[in-house]
Design a protein around this nucleic acid. Structure first.
Length: 433
RNA sequence: GUGACCUUAGUUUAGUGGUAAAACUCCACUCUGUGGAAGUGGUAUCGGGAGUUCGAUUCUCCUAGGUCACCCCA
């Protein structure tokens, strides 16, 4: 925002990128840690894939005609001429890694969790940046719907417990496999084609580019048409029907409540069968649009699209930034940085020279400490100490340095005692109890 | 990618066609070894560039960034 260095824009962030500092950083870290604990309880193992991947990995996996590929990828070309992109999503890289490292030789299914930055070049707005954090889960090598349920249940638990957002509503649907979806899409298209003239502009475009998205339209004019549209549930093949039914039964038995959303579709080409999304259950008094907190689905054909034999898989991810955004909007940010208990003050150059040595003693004794070593006057250092809310202050002056002692000052009672440095740790520990 | 609104110190905001004000914060000093106070001072080429004008922070255009909506998605 600011300039200072002339007009060169050197002091300016790139659009859609954000600095994460102090409290937010710590909250983020905590959420991730808790999420990792929950994930590993359910049996997931960590994986970290690179930020850069070959462009083709995504163009073929996600689908050429999706927005992500058409306009949202950060592309760069290497000197050797390779086309690379900053990863726009997490699933394709993980399937790539699974194949590349021969994970099919491990006991199946392989369950993985990851978190990190993803990049999409789109117009920033509420809950959407160009660099954003996801926490995601993938289960590869298993077709049974129990693993779909594991993904949903684990992500739900993470949202509710690690992030602390309740209540979450789970929207769920099945979009069939390649075969039955093809049939359905045809039906849907013919149904809509007859009503082309009554559709909104976007839908007329969708009809050609991505018919499934017609169901996603929020426009009133299209609502009526949508009501009468054929439902995918009725077109699922026996295999898909059973898979979906079983998933719902498992969720029922797990006491996960969900909302059957026949209009829920996913944008990426590789999805099949299960699709799900998480929302914050809406409060009627809040006028803000409800953000999708996370989502995912099954992608049994992804490995095949990438040129491998079929590997069934299912996964999902949580938008960490969005979750934090909602937390802060609900003012639930537990802003709790540890208050520094002890503040170290030095006076005079001899003391200053010795201060790093002293700090090290305290560090090894695991006594957290704050300081302002670059300052000289006692007054200003005390001021800072009280501003930070320190309960004890250590003062090392000229006299103490030569005597090998140090002053411990109680900031509340203003009482002080002089102790030999050799006894400092013991005395402090007693006081801090 | 499309559209709307916005951009004045670190922060939050005044204000005017004749080169800017307040509050809080920060830094320094008053006060060279004892804090929470007070006083004094310091910190802005009014996001950047171009144009209109004798003169623009103020008007116009462009650009960058912010916020929001659409598309789409996490």
């Amino acid at each position: 925002m600011s300039k200072k260095i002339n007009n060169k824009g050197l002091i300016e962030r790139v659009r859609g990128m954000h600095d994460v500092m102090s409290n937010e950083y710590l909250i983020r870290k905590k959420i991730i840690e808790k999420a990792e604990n929950i994930a590993s309880f359910y049996g997931f193992e960590p994986i970290q894939t690179p930020h850069l991947e070959r462009a083709e990995l995504f163009t073929s996996a996600i689908g050429e005609s999706t927005d992500i590929i058409e306009k949202e990828m950060y592309k760069l070309k290497t000197k050797g001429g390779d086309n690379l992109v900053l990863r726009p999503e997490g699933t394709a890289p993980i399937v790539r890694a699974y194949i590349e490292h021969g994970m099919q030789t491990k006991p199946q299914p392989v369950m993985l969790y990851y978190h990190g930055s993803f990049f999409r070049h789109e117009r920033p707005q509420r809950g959407r940046s160009r660099e954003f954090q996801q926490f995601g889960l993938e289960i590869l090598g298993e077709e049974n719907s129990i693993v779909d349920a594991i993904i949903i249940k684990t992500l739900l638990t993470i949202l509710e417990e690690a992030v602390g957002i309740k209540p979450i509503s789970v929207h769920i649907n099945s979009i069939g496999d390649k075969e039955c979806r093809k049939v359905y899409q045809k039906e849907l298209t013919t149904y809509y084609k007859r009503k082309t003239n009554d559709l909104c502009k976007d839908c007329q475009y969708r009809l050609k580019s991505n018919p499934l998205r017609l169901l996603d339209c929020k426009n009133k004019e299209c609502d009526e048409i949508k009501q009468g549209a054929p439902q995918i549930i009725n077109y699922l093949c026996p295999g898909c029907t059973n898979h979906f039914k079983e998933l719902l039964e498992i969720l029922d038995a797990s006491e996960v409540s969900y909302f059957l959303d026949q209009y829920l579709v996913r944008g990426l080409d590789y999805y099949s069968r299960t699709a799900f999304e998480f929302f914050l259950e809406e409060n009627p008094d809040e006028e803000k649009m409800s953000l999708e907190l996370g989502g995912g689905g099954r992608y049994d054909s992804l490995a095949h699209i990438l040129g491998n034999k079929n590997i069934p898989g299912v996964g999902g991810a949580i938008g960490v930034d969005r979750a934090i955004k909602i937390l802060s909007e609900k003012k639930k940010l537990s802003v709790q940085t540890k208050t520094p208990e002890v503040f170290f003050i030095q006076l005079g150059s001899n003391a200053k020279y010795k201060s790093l040595f002293l700090l090290d003693i305290l560090r090894k004794a695991k006594i957290p400490i704050k300081h302002s070593l670059s300052r000289n006057s006692l007054k200003s250092q005390l001021k800072i100490a009280s501003k930070l809310g320190a309960s004890y202050v250590l003062i090392l002056g000229q006299k103490e340095t030569t005597d090998n002692t140090i002053i411990i000052r109680n900031m509340e009672t203003t009482s002080q005692e002089i102790v030999p440095i050799s006894k400092l740790v013991d005395r402090l520990k007693k006081k801090l109890k």
